[in-house]
Structures are given as structure tokens and as C-alpha cells.
Design a protein around this nucleic acid. Structure first.
Length: 251
DNA sequence: GATGTGACTCGTCATGCCAT
DNA sequence: ATGGCATGACGAGTCACATC
């Protein structure tokens, strides 16, 4: 299946991308003759008429929730091409995987991924190996760095509240701290305010309420369990879990 | 078992924005 | 104009999982 995001295609972004790449404006308007097309095509795609560098084009945008294989798209495109032989028929998608990109190219299907890729042999080719990441929906758990901030806050060890200060405090990069704050905001645990060039964040809640809210979002630091034989080498490793608790506290 | 693919995590670089 | 901060884009390293 072709991975087409359900996010609507941003036609303005498409226009900007084409302008940057070709130095020419692409004029886009709804495809007036859409009603004369077979129903299964109208159901599957939004169609737009466009004009670019004196070429008449039909832009094919997959409808929400429609996942077609490159082979099916090739057939649909061939149907349109039969009726409109003088038009360039171009698939528009927000994202195309490497594998499907190769299949589309192999089948000579022109496509544009706004801001990222263009394969229209009659006009231009712009293929990059690195693709725009899909806008992440928040994961179901906090990342390690965000988790660190929660635990530090619970222990009153957060003396600074900016990405830069936190990066120095915990020996992470500023970028990593910035992303951790993004995560805490996404989970509604914290708010961040930009004051001048500083971004200050604070937890919405503290203490027990913060722990209760964050607890379901925490992940275990235990990745795997192995059974090992006790030996002298092992005795020099740091204690963990209940052993550490028994050693370092009165519990 | 080897290989390919994708997810995850974090670092680096470039750039835009803001304060001075 | 300059310097510092925040952030987007991209790359590296690692791991898990699927497939052959």
C-alpha cells in the first residue's frame, strides 16, 4: 500500500515548493470535468487542474483513508491519461516510502511530495534520500529525558527551567532538552512560555499529583532480564533495585 | 544465520529570532 | 551588527523484528 497521510495536502506548500524548484508558479484550480469521471475515481481522489511551465496538468490527491498500491495508481492514472492525453497527470502525496518511490519511478508515475520530492521527468526531478518526518503524534510513554525531568522535579533537583540550563545541568544537548519539554507539554504535564529569547517551562502540578499523573506514562528502565552466575567481576558492579535500597537506606 | 527495514534516541549543523 | 538561545532538518548508532 502507498503510505499517504490523511492530513490534507497543503496546496500553498506545493506552490512554494514548485516555485523554489522550478522558479515558476503553478496555478491550481478544481478540476472542472471531475463529474464526467468514473465514480470509483471520484471516490478515491481529489482532482485539481493545474498549469505549470506551459504544461497542462491534472493533480491526483488521494482521498482520506484511501491507500492504493503503486500498481493501482498506475492503472487509475492510465485511465485518466486515455481521456486527457495532452495532460501531465501527477500524483500528490505528503509522504512516499523509499520502496514505493522506487516502484512509482519504475512505472513512470510522476509524483510530487510538497517540500521534499519531485519526480516529473518532463519538468524536473528532485529526489532526496531523507524524508520529512511525519508529524509525530505523542508516543504513549514519556521518553527517557522527559522522564528524567519528571523524576528530578519530584526530587526538587530542577534548579533551572530553560533548555540550555537543563542541558548543562544533566549533560544532555540543548536540542534533547528542548524535545523533552515538548513531550511534557504534549502530555499536558508542563507548560512552557517564551520570554524574550528564553523558553521557561514549569510543571502544571507538583509532588504527589505530578507523580500520579506521570506514573502511567513512565517506562521501566529494565530492558531485559538475564540470569547470571555470581562471580568476583559481578561483585564490583553497582547495586540496583532492592539490593541498592537495602544497602543505601534503612529499609 | 544473514540481511533488510524501521523505530528509537540523541548529537550536530544551520538558521531564525530576539536582546543588547 | 553581534551574540546567544531555540528549533528544524538530518545523520549516526543501536536495537528489535521480519523475511529469506
Amino acid at each position: 500500500m502507498l503510505e499517504i497521510e490523511t492530513d490534507p495536502i497543503d496546496l500553498a506548500e506545493l506552490q512554494t515548493y514548485v516555485m523554489q524548484l522550478l522558479g515558476a508558479r503553478i496555478e491550481i484550480k478544481p478540476f472542472a470535468k471531475a463529474n464526467s469521471l468514473p465514480a470509483f475515481l471520484r471516490d478515491r481522489y481529489s482532482l485539481f487542474a493545474a498549469r505549470l511551465l506551459n504544461h497542462r496538468c491534472i493533480l491526483l490527491i488521494a482521498a482520506d483513508g484511501i491507500d492504493e498500491t503503486p500498481g493501482a495508481i498506475t492503472k487509475h492514472r492510465a485511465l485518466l491519461q486515455r481521456d486527457y492525453p495532452d495532460h501531465l497527470i501527477i500524483l500528490i502525496a505528503n509522504r512516499i516510502s523509499t520502496h514505493n518511490r522506487q516502484r512509482l519511478i519504475a512505472q513512470h508515475v510522476p509524483f510530487i511530495v510538497p517540500g521534499n520530492q519531485m519526480f516529473v521527468p518532463d519538468l524536473a526531478i528532485d529526489l532526496r534520500e531523507h524524508f520529512r518526518k511525519q508529524r509525530e503524534t505523542p508516543a504513549d510513554k514519556l521518553g527517557p529525558t522527559a522522564q528524567l525531568l519528571v523524576l528530578a522535579a519530584l526530587q526538587d533537583k530542577l534548579a533551572v527551567w530553560t533548555p540550555t540550563g537543563l542541558a548543562e545541568r544533566f549533560d544532555y544537548s540543548i536540542m534533547t532538552m528542548s524535545r523533552a519539554i515538548d513531550e511534557l507539554e504534549a502530555f499536558d504535564l508542563a507548560t512552557a512560555q517564551v520570554q524574550g529569547k528564553f523558553r521557561h517551562f514549569q510543571f502544571r502540578i507538583t509532588g504527589r499529583r505530578l507523580w500520579d499523573a506521570a506514573h502511567p506514562l513512565l517506562r521501566s528502565p529494565v530492558r531485559k532480564r538475564h540470569i547470571v552466575r555470581h562471580n568476583a567481576e559481578l561483585a564490583r558492579l553497582p547495586l540496583a533495585g532492592e539490593s541498592a535500597l537495602a544497602h543505601w537506606t534503612d529499609l
